[in-house]
């Protein structure tokens, strides 16, 4: 069964072809246009779904040496996301489905991330703990099957990726801030400033990163009103990174222990951070937990994870589950909130 997957929930236009859990192609607009034009074309790179979608879908089919007539199902992200962006992908999928008589399977973007670690690691067994950590989301899930999972904690203000980006901005670094802080932090002392680890002992699995932003701003204003030199900058970057990663690692490990999870799967753009991967690997290994983070192309927003999950859902459910095509901007709701 070949599946065409389409993802347009926020910045990226992406399409992928999946067959028997294998990714035959996975085209993501920012990377595609970057390699095609030797640099990101701003108008085409972000949220220009209407302009990019035909090119991206055709490219995904070509790279997979597939024809649209071989496609058994079209998987498409219908929630959560920007309504204007979601509608482009979902309506494109519906149109294609009508024309070629292919069923359309709606998929939740966050669920795509939750299961993305399994694309390259089929051996992962349920149940497991999944941390989805990106610019827009920071959430912990207890995952019981392809059809059942539970949100156990989320950020109450800023996502971890946003904390990286905004503190980088306060330090005068460019965008995206995460990779830049990661780079500068390599030469810095992580104990130079003891930035707050908010909610680290809150007793629940929620996160808060908004205060870090203010702490960094106040620290610079107080100690370096005329700006920081490069040496100090590396120390501050290392200290910021340490503070963010500490909270993510400690809370996720606590959850894995509390839920007796043998696996800890981290996904989303921030999981590309080198310190995060190192610390998660160390702390998990110490406790006999297997840490898994997908390759970068499955960490960022991508259609492969949407197609991968759609195939599992089709196998594990009946077609009745896919009758309704729902749009919603809502990500998830804490059960006991």
């Amino acid at each position: 069964m070949k599946i065409l997957a389409i993802e347009t929930s926020c910045d990226e236009t992406s399409a992928a072809i999946i067959e028997n859990s294998q990714v035959l192609s996975n085209v993501v607009s920012s990377q595609y246009f970057h390699s095609k034009y030797g640099g990101v074309v701003p108008e085409l790179a972000s949220r220009a779904h209407l302009h990019s979608i035909v090119t991206i879908v055709k490219n995904a089919l070509n790279l997979a040496h597939s024809d649209i007539n071989e496609i058994s199902a079209i998987a498409v992200t219908t929630q959560p996301g920007l309504i204007g962006s979601l509608i482009v992908g979902a309506n494109f999928a519906k149109g294609l489905g009508l024309r070629y008589n292919i069923p359309v399977v709606p998929i939740n973007h966050i669920e795509g991330h939750i299961y993305s670690g399994m694309i390259e690691n089929e051996e992962i067994n349920f149940p497991y703990i999944s941390l989805v950590v990106s610019g827009g989301h920071t959430a912990l899930f207890y995952v019981e099957s392809f059809l059942k999972y539970q949100l156990i904690g989320t950020t109450i203000d800023d996502a971890a990726g946003e904390a990286f980006d905004k503190t980088a901005k306060l330090l005068g670094l460019g965008y995206p801030g995460g990779p830049l802080i990661d780079k500068f932090a390599k030469d810095g002392d992580p104990n130079y400033v003891n930035f707050p680890r908010a909610m680290i002992n809150s007793g629940d699995y929620n996160f808060s990163f908004s205060g870090l932003k203010t702490a960094v701003k106040n620290y610079i204003n107080k100690n370096f009103p005329d700006g920081v030199n490069e040496k100090i900058l590396t120390h501050i970057c290392a200290s910021i990174q340490e503070a963010i990663v500490d909270v993510l690692v400690i809370k996720a490990i606590k959850a894995a222990i509390a839920y007796s999870s043998k696996y800890l799967v981290v996904a989303g753009g921030v999981s590309a951070n080198s310190l995060l991967r190192r610390k998660f690997a160390q702390e998990s290994a110490l406790r006999g937990i297997k840490f898994i983070a997908p390759s970068l192309s499955y960490c960022i927003d991508n259609a492969a994870m949407i197609g991968f999950l759609a195939e599992k859902k089709i196998i594990n459910a009946t077609l009745d589950d896919f009758k309704r095509l729902d749009f919603t901007t809502k990500a998830y709701t804490l059960k006991n909130h």
Partner: peptide, 15 residues
């Protein structure tokens, strides 16, 4: 509002 109000910097619009 019962939902948690988070920053929409990356998601752009929260409802």
């Amino acid at each position: 509002v019962q939902e948690i109000v988070t920053s929409p910097t990356f998601t752009i619009i929260n409802q």
